[in-house]
Simulated assay, not measured.
Amino acid sequence: MKRHEALNPLSHHHHHTLTQALELQRAGTEKSQKGYTELLRDLIGFWERDGNNHFRDEEEVLIPLYLEHADSIEMDLVKEILYQHAQIRSSIQHLREDRQTSYKEMNELGELLNNHVRLEERQLFPLIEQAVPEKYLYQANGRFHRDSHSGF
């Protein structure tokens, strides 16, 4: 999907999130090459290096920019995205605190991450690209954190 170049850093983050989501979705199955501890360690590392900062970029920069410039705000979509952010944070916190959780909880988090990224890429980002003037998208780009994998 062609994305405005100013949003490319967030789309790069999304790509890495989808990789993490797939690993979580496969956790505990024959398709997984990682054990529970390694999956958890990778998830926590991903979250601390990039995931939490990515959510902050969206909540503190991107969504307010959309709300400021959109003629007609898709409020249900914004609420759903913010709700999913809270769900994901809660799930990650639970997995961090309770080392006895099951693969099923990892699978559910993987599914949630996958669906969340798809929702943002397919619905939110196109709305933002339409509503926000290009110069403000470029200004926002300068405020996004840089991904630890790609440098974007």
Score class of each variant (00 low, 15 high):
Asp42Cys: 08
Ile44Leu: 06
Glu30Ile: 11
Thr19Leu: 08
Leu39Thr: 11
Ala27Asp: 01
Gln20Ile: 03
Gln25Ile: 07
Leu18Trp: 06
Asp42Glu: 13
Gln20Asn: 05
Gln33Val: 09
Glu30Met: 07
Ala6Leu: 06
His14Phe: 14
Glu5Leu: 08
Thr29Ser: 12
Ser11Thr: 12
Arg41Leu: 03
Leu43Arg: 04
Leu10Ser: 00
Glu5Gln: 10
Thr19Tyr: 13
Gln25Tyr: 02
Glu38Met: 15
Ile44Trp: 01
Asp42Ala: 13
Leu10Thr: 07
Glu23His: 10
Lys31Glu: 08
Asn8Pro: 02
Glu23Leu: 13
His4Glu: 10
Glu23Phe: 08
Thr37Trp: 01
Gln33Ala: 00
His4Thr: 14
Leu39Ser: 11
Lys31Gly: 00
His14Asp: 09
His4Asn: 12
Arg41Tyr: 00
Asn8Ile: 15
His14Trp: 06
Ala27Met: 12
Glu5Asp: 13
Lys34Val: 15
Gln20Lys: 09
Leu43Thr: 00
Glu38Gly: 03
Leu10Ala: 04
His4Asp: 13
Lys34Gly: 02
Glu38Arg: 08
Gly35Ile: 03
Leu10Gly: 00
Tyr36Trp: 08
Thr17Glu: 11
Thr37Leu: 07
Ala27His: 08
His15Asn: 08
Glu38Lys: 05
Thr29Ile: 10
Pro9Ile: 10
Leu7Asn: 00
Glu30Tyr: 12
His4Cys: 09
His14Gly: 00
His4Met: 10
Arg41Gln: 06
Glu5Trp: 03
Leu18Phe: 07
